[in-house]
Each structure stands twice: as C-alpha cells, then as structure tokens.
Design a protein around this nucleic acid. Sequence first.
DNA 1: AGATGACGCAACGAGTAATA
DNA 2: TATTACTCGTTGCGTCATCT
Length: 341
Amino acid sequence: MPGDAGPPSTRSSRPWDIEYSRCTPVTRRDECCGPPGSRRPESCTPSHVTRRANENPRLVEAVRQRIRDSGPITAADLEQRVDKLGSWWSWDDGKVVLEHLFHRGEVVVVRRKRDFTRLYDLPERVLPASALDAPTPTEAEARKELLAIAARSMGVATLEDMADYHRQWRPRSSKPLVAELVEEGVLLPVTVEGWTKPAYLHRDAKLPRAVDARALLSPFDSLVWHRDRNERLFDFHYRIEIYTPAPKRVYGYYVLPYLLGDRIVGRVDLKADRPAGVLRVQGAYAEPGVDTAAAASPLIEELRLMAEWLELDIVASADRGELAEALRRAGRPRLEQDHSE
DNA sequence: AGATGACGCAACGAGTAATA
DNA sequence: TATTACTCGTTGCGTCATCT
C-alpha cells in the first residue's frame, strides 16, 4: 500500500529472487524447472522486450560488460537513459535490456532496494553451485512442470488458469502439454458447475472439510490476481485502481480484498500514514449479503496486525463503505474515527 | 468467433539534490 | 537542518484491429 515498503520477501536479503510471475511464491521445488538464472520460456517473455533488445545488440553487450566489470546494478545505474517512451510504465532502453537479460537467464535479480528497484547481477556471483550445475530442461519440459505445479497449487483449474499462474502467455499453446499431463494421470478432466470451459483436477488435490481463513490480501496475491478465475470462484469483481484516474475509482487507490472463512466478504482501502503513525482505513466495503457485524470484529484484528507489521501505532477508519459503521461499533474504544479528510 | 497484439491511458512513494 | 522540487521506478486495464 502507499507508504508500504512491501512484503517481507521483498525486503529481505535472500541470496536470489526469481519471479516466474510477480507474486506467486517460488519454492525450492520449483527449481525442478531449471535453476534460477536458466533461460525462461519464450512464452513467458514480453515480446516487446525481446524485440527492443534485439534491435539494440550493441547496448545489450554494453550492459553485459557493465555488470561483469562493476557488479550488481539497477536500471538507474546505466547511462543509457534514452528512448523513454512515455511518462511512466514505460521502460527506457537500459531497463529493457536488463529485463531481456533477466528473461534469458543471463542475469538474476539479487534483491530489490527499498523503492522496489531491482538489483541485477550475474548468476554465478549469487547462486549456489547446486543450482548452477542443475541440468537445464527443454522449454516444453519446463512449461509442463510449471503447469503441473500450478494445477497442484490451485486444485482445480482451467487451461487458462494453469497457464496464467506462472504467466505463460498464449494459453492455447499449453494445450498439448495439458493433454500429456492428463495422459500421465497427473490431471483429471472434470466439469465444474457454472464454468463454461473444461476444468482439470490435480491428482493430489484435497478438499478440506472447512476453510478457516482470515486475511487481508495483497492486490497481487495469487488468490485474486487472476481476475477471471476470481470471479468464477468467489463471484468477486476486483480491479486494482492505482491505474485509474481518481474521479473514476469505485473503491480507492489501494484496495485489499478481505478473506474470511472461504469467501471474500469485502475490501478495504488502506493507506500507511507514516508521519502520523496511523494506518488509515479510507473505505471499508462489504460484498452483497455479508453480515457486516460478524465481518467487522475479525477485520479489526487483521487491521491491527497490519498496523503492527507496518510499525504504525493507530488504526483510524473513515466513514466510507458498508463496513465502516460496523467497524467502528466493533472497534470501540480502540479504533479511532478518521476525520483527516 | 476467439485469440492475440498494439496501444493509449493512468499515480504515487522514495530518494536525492537544491534551496531557504 | 528543514523544506521543496525533481527524478525515477513500479506488481494494469481496456479497447480496437488483425490474425488464426
């Protein structure tokens, strides 16, 4: 959220940080798809990155040389601050080349600096020998294994769900690999009520008797980031609105879905006001049919946990959204009303 | 018809340098 | 030393045209 230094994983100094997708947890088991630093499938690389890098081979070589000579760098360390395409969300040539090398496995992201900036270095400087020496799978082998991992993580999923989990674009191209997984008995074709596309159940999928979850989800949590699956599973329409002009926002700049039990029952617009030491709940919204009183108490606990984690002293709630009133009732006297606006 | 790609549009926080 | 101005980086979305 605004003012947030990011989840602990982005702040830690892990020896390496690989991201098959932006936020999907990458476990040691995922290394079976090749060591971090190995070349990633073309289908996971944005085409414009490959195209722009290929148009600029001299710059690619210069960036390689720069990292070899002077160690880990960020995009801002490069002199090539040219050809920036737009005001933001556009990479200049230096950043494009670094991402190109990252996708090719020639560099790895060592860690992120406090402002999320990626720090790139050579794999051989940061990876253990066991990872460097592991055999590199073929693209098909790697993609198939990633699909299996995705299916196991999701339990039941469509082809598109599995492909999206590790950002394998062009899901249709995954079809033959999924067919192989079915053939091998890893996946079982099933139908899911209300789903229009074929679904697959992983052979290790388990159906828990009860789900007793309680969490404020990051907008980039793998549970909610595939918007289509999200709507199929939870009937929860979610769009991140940091990219939406302020007047057009429905819920707020940085809104976190609120998971309670096995449902997403609401969402809160949070801001970490560090100078004041306050976690501001700028809006608290309930999904239709949700018992707001029952949802409010556990939400307060989650908000306090969040404040504690962010090292903020107070949680203050503004009077916006269906949950706001219930939140204040349940929180009295330890939850302050936010009059800051 | 559905998949795919191109493209336009969109905000904030952190860090740092300049200035008062 | 505090404040201000500026730079930089970033984890999408929707629409439309073209392709398969």
